[in-house]
Simulated assay, not measured.
Amino acid sequence: MTGDRPISEDDLHAFLDGMLDPARRDAVERYLDTHPQAAARIATYRTQGDALRAALAPIADQPTPPEFALRPLVERRRRRFARHRQIAAAIGILCLGGMTGWFGHQALTLPSHGVHALAQEAVDNYEVYAADLRRPVELPSDQTAALAYWVSERLGAPVEPPDLRAAGYRFLGGRLVTTPNGPAAMFIYEGPAADRLAVMARPMTIDKNRAMSERAFGALQGVTWSRDGLGFSVVAPRASGRLAPVAAEVQRQTASA
């Protein structure tokens, strides 16, 4: 049963760290054999880790210098703390105003909830599910009505898979996926060259109405937008051709719905 579960990003990092049980490790190795992009990324991480360990090895083998002994360090820290206690109180008052400005800046610039986050979430889930040749969907296309009811109930908004047959994509089915911003619906399609396309939708807490924006993610490309508090992202391999017309059709159907 362990091998039947889709490979996640956590599985890939646990594989890199040698933390998987044998059955899950074998499943990840099979996944990497059929997903060259993920395999190349893991190989890069491993090379970087080996280089870092090699660079630090001479230092790690040296004895600890006397000046870094724990007792003198604690004593120096205690004296320094006592000497600057009164200064710290004054600095704290000054920092209070600075922190207010900083957190205000963070609130304005934090991109973890808007359309940029949605675009990355769609790509991450595409790499896990749409690239899975055995089980990319939870409910297949012959259960479209049940799928639409399921995801609409969980998202709190009416969502159903667009019909993309005119664009050359056959609907395979869909599933609920997880994101840092709550559940999302993912619908997966297959083109004439067996290339996969995914449409992901989730409620938006910010960027509730944003125009379409297109962005490349390595070998993938995505088009993302939001309307009336619901965000959409369409993802496909860059080699599949121009994605904007397909995204425009998704936008047209979801807006009319």
Rank of each mutant, 00 (worst) to 15 (best):
R76V: 04
T224A: 02
R78W: 09
P58Y: 09
D4I: 15
L176I: 02
V159I: 01
A219P: 10
V246P: 00
G92S: 14
Y169C: 02
A247P: 00
G241E: 04
A55M: 13
G3D: 15
R41Y: 07
L230V: 03
A130F: 02
S8V: 10
D33H: 13
T144M: 06
A185L: 01
L52N: 06
V123N: 02
R252G: 07
V177Y: 01
A145V: 10
P6E: 04
D10N: 15
A38M: 08
A57D: 08
G231W: 00
R30Y: 10
R242P: 14
Q37A: 14
P66V: 09
V199H: 00
T179Y: 03
V223I: 03
H113D: 11
L52V: 07
S256I: 11
P161S: 05
M99G: 13
P136D: 04
G173S: 07
S233V: 06
Y31G: 08
Y149T: 14
M212N: 06
L172K: 07
A117P: 00
Q37D: 13
K208W: 05
T179P: 01
A14K: 11
T2F: 14
R24D: 05
L147D: 02
G104A: 09
G218Y: 02
A244C: 05
V28C: 09
A157E: 01
T2C: 15
F187L: 02
S141D: 14
P6V: 02
V177I: 06
V151C: 03
T178F: 09
A43E: 09
L32D: 03
Y129C: 01
P140G: 04
A219H: 08
P65F: 06
F81N: 14
H113N: 14
V115W: 00
Y149W: 10
Y45G: 10
L94H: 06
A23F: 05
R227P: 08
R134C: 08
G3F: 12
P162W: 00
A130W: 01
W102M: 12
G92M: 10
A166K: 04
A23N: 10
I188M: 09
M200R: 03
Q251F: 07
L176T: 05
L197Q: 00
G92C: 11
E249Y: 02
R25H: 12
L32T: 01
V234R: 03
A89E: 13
I7Q: 07
Q221E: 13
T224V: 08
T254E: 14
P161L: 03
F217S: 06
M99H: 10
P72I: 04
A69I: 10
Q106C: 12
A193I: 06
R53V: 05
R196V: 08
A23E: 11
A89F: 15
D21M: 09
E127A: 08
A89R: 15
S226I: 06
V223G: 00
P140W: 08
W225I: 04
G104T: 12
R25L: 10
Q143N: 09
Q120V: 06
